[in-house]
Design a protein around this nucleic acid. Structure first.
Length: 271
DNA sequence: CCACGCTCCTGCGCGC
DNA sequence: TGCGCGCAGGAGCGTG
């Protein structure tokens, strides 16, 4: 579910609601998500101040005065701000309580993660090898052109490979390739500089449009106040198999590639 | 280094 | 109506 826009929306809301606040306690109801939860989370965080929240790819970095809590929402996770006394629902695995507000982690599929990284979080093994941020100045056509040389894999897979670019998942990869008019199975190394010049702004525009629309809510994603995103209404190809392309009118195709659904327009997108 | 397939888990929609 | 199957937005890891 959550790709970069949804994680960034979550980051902004949590920053508004919680930065500078002190943890009262933490409640852990599930011992393990993708990884075991930190031991004694309440003891680790109680009395500590949350200085800021950063994002690296789809990871949220909650910076406390004595270290960093790394959170990942996996495929079905959300972080909501709730009154601490609100009864937990099914799959509400963790609360971090800040006085009269709690940050509640909900994750039906439990692919999410919560890890304590200490002071050197950015060197954590999960973060150290991540690629460039797609909304940063580093992500340029020249950079993408260089990064794709020697890569035979399909451009869609390379876009989704977090060692290359972070934050682009299955939905936004399909949408970005449509906007750039590039067929998703094009071998990455065959992309000319001109096509990289199409693709880089297409990725940026897709992510920024999703951010403006409040992200996508397909099944699980909710904002930290419980409201829903609406970018799914603006999709050009994702989930639109057999529907008419918004640009050329031809039927959108769906195929399975590398065990993932891939959507494209056979008229607009070329190798 | 690169490519690929498997894996964790629950829920839901579809077809029979 | 009920049930079983396949699929769902991530990404680390092992293997070749």
């Amino acid at each position: 579910m959550p790709e970069l826009p949804e994680v960034e929306i979550t980051r902004r809301a949590l920053t508004r609601g919680l930065s500078g606040e002190r943890v009262t306690t933490a409640v852990v109801r599930t011992a393990q998500l993708r990884y075991p939860l930190p031991d004694d989370l309440a003891g680790l965080l109680a009395g500590r101040k949350l200085d800021s929240i950063d994002r690296r790819g789809k990871y949220l970095l909650l910076r406390f005065e004595h270290g960093t809590l790394i959170a990942h929402l996996g495929m079905s996770g959300s972080l909501r701000l709730v009154p601490p006394q609100l009864a937990p629902a099914k799959h509400d695995h963790v609360d971090i309580v800040f006085g009269q507000r709690a940050m509640r982690l909900h994750d039906p599929r439990r692919f999410g993660a919560l890890l304590w990284a200490g002071a050197e979080a950015d060197r954590h093994s999960l973060l150290a090898a991540l690629g460039v941020e797609p909304l940063s100045r580093e992500f340029t056509p020249e950079w993408l052109h260089r990064a794709t040389r020697g890569r035979k894999a399909a451009i869609k897979l390379v876009l989704m490979d977090s060692r290359t670019v972070v934050g682009v998942g299955n939905i936004y990869a399909s949408e970005s390739l449509f906007r750039a008019r590039i067929h998703p199975l094009t071998p990455a190394q065959r992309l000319s500089r001109a096509r990289c010049t199409q693709l880089v702004p297409a990725v940026r525009q897709t992510l920024q449009a999703a951010l403006r629309a409040g992200g996508s809510t397909l099944r699980d994603f909710v904002h930290s106040d419980g409201s829903l995103g609406c970018f799914q209404n603006e999709y050009y190809v994702y989930g639109r198999a057999a529907e008419a392309c918004r640009i050329c009118g031809r039927a959108i195709r769906q195929m399975r590639h590398a065990q993932r659904s891939t959507f494209y327009c056979p008229g607009c997108q070329r190798y």
